[in-house]
């Protein structure tokens, strides 16, 4: 059987809210090491990779590897019934066709359970190579959210260029043009307010803003976001979810015809 208990149920709620518009359905692959999800959006332009570690949960048991097919809008409907302070336990029998979600209030005076019907989803796993990136930028997740939201109101695509001067986001549209540059800045005392640019070589890539804006729905999960860029390769937008794991979004670049 599979059983995973998380005291901070709000994390699970935020996670599903971050994914549900990008990814309609996907398999929760559970094993003794934790829970993983790899899923593409419907247009196959971006990929979500979620990895939650077994030791990030208060309790985790998985006797057999299983792929649990999840419809994210449906999971979201159920998680909306959990309180923000609730502890959430996920449970499934081996080869089950449903996932049980149990919500316990913090003072244990309210317990509810919901069964989510599981789906059978054929999904191919893409091989994401481990690699060095030309530029890695850590910045406040709220800053990333603001930049992509602001630029989405001006244009459809963004040119992201990382140089020793900083990281620049440029777009243009019917209204005009916009450029936002962030410089390396380690002045703030709190690490989550710093902008750290680790540059091996300058790089510039163009991406659809719609997707970058969608990734920002993960902002409530983490105070910091990391962007990784290499010429002619997908950007990685990564949010560390405390000690529990991470969610990474990969978006294919736009390339000259």
């Amino acid at each position: 059987m599979f059983e995973a208990r998380i005291t901070q149920g709000a994390v699970l709620k935020k996670l599903v809210e971050a994914l549900k518009e990008l990814v309609t359905e996907g398999n929760f692959d559970v094993s003794s090491t934790g829970l993983q999800l790899q899923a593409m959006d419907s247009s196959h332009v971006c990929l979500v990779s979620l990895a939650l570690r077994e030791d990030g949960f208060e309790h985790f048991r998985c006797d057999r590897n299983m792929a649990m097919g999840i419809h994210f809008q449906n999971l979201s409907k159920i998680l909306k019934c959990a309180g923000n302070e609730d502890t959430i336990t996920l449970k499934a029998e081996d080869n089950a066709d449903q996932l049980t979600l149990m919500f316990e209030s913090s003072n244990q005076d309210r317990i509810s359970d919901f069964d989510l019907k599981l789906m059978s989803i054929e999904s191919e796993h893409l091989g994401i190579p481990d690699q060095e990136y030309s530029a890695e930028i850590k910045m406040p997740s709220s800053e990333y959210q603001r930049i992509v939201r602001d630029l989405t109101s001006i244009g459809d695509t963004v040119l992201i260029s990382a140089t020793k001067e900083g990281i620049k986001f440029s777009t243009s549209g019917d209204v005009g043009t916009a450029n936002v540059t962030l410089r390396h800045n380690t002045t703030p005392e709190k690490p989550e307010e710093q902008t750290i640019i680790d540059l091996k070589e300058p790089v510039a890539l163009t991406f659809a803003l719609r997707y970058l804006n969608n990734f920002a729905k993960a902002t409530p999960l983490a105070p910091v976001v990391k962007l990784s860029l290499t010429k002619d390769l997908p950007i990685v937008v990564e949010y560390q979810i405390g000690e529990l794991g991470a969610v990474k979004f990969y978006l294919a670049p736009k390339i000259d015809d």
């Binding site: 971006c46 990929l47 191919e124 091989g127 294919a252 736009k254 390339i255 000259d256």
Partner: peptide, 13 residues
């Protein structure tokens, strides 16, 4: 500009 699919980079369709 042309939008590539993610599978073009990581294998698959």
């Amino acid at each position: 500009m042309k939008q590539k699919s993610i599978g073009a980079f990581f294998g698959g369709a």
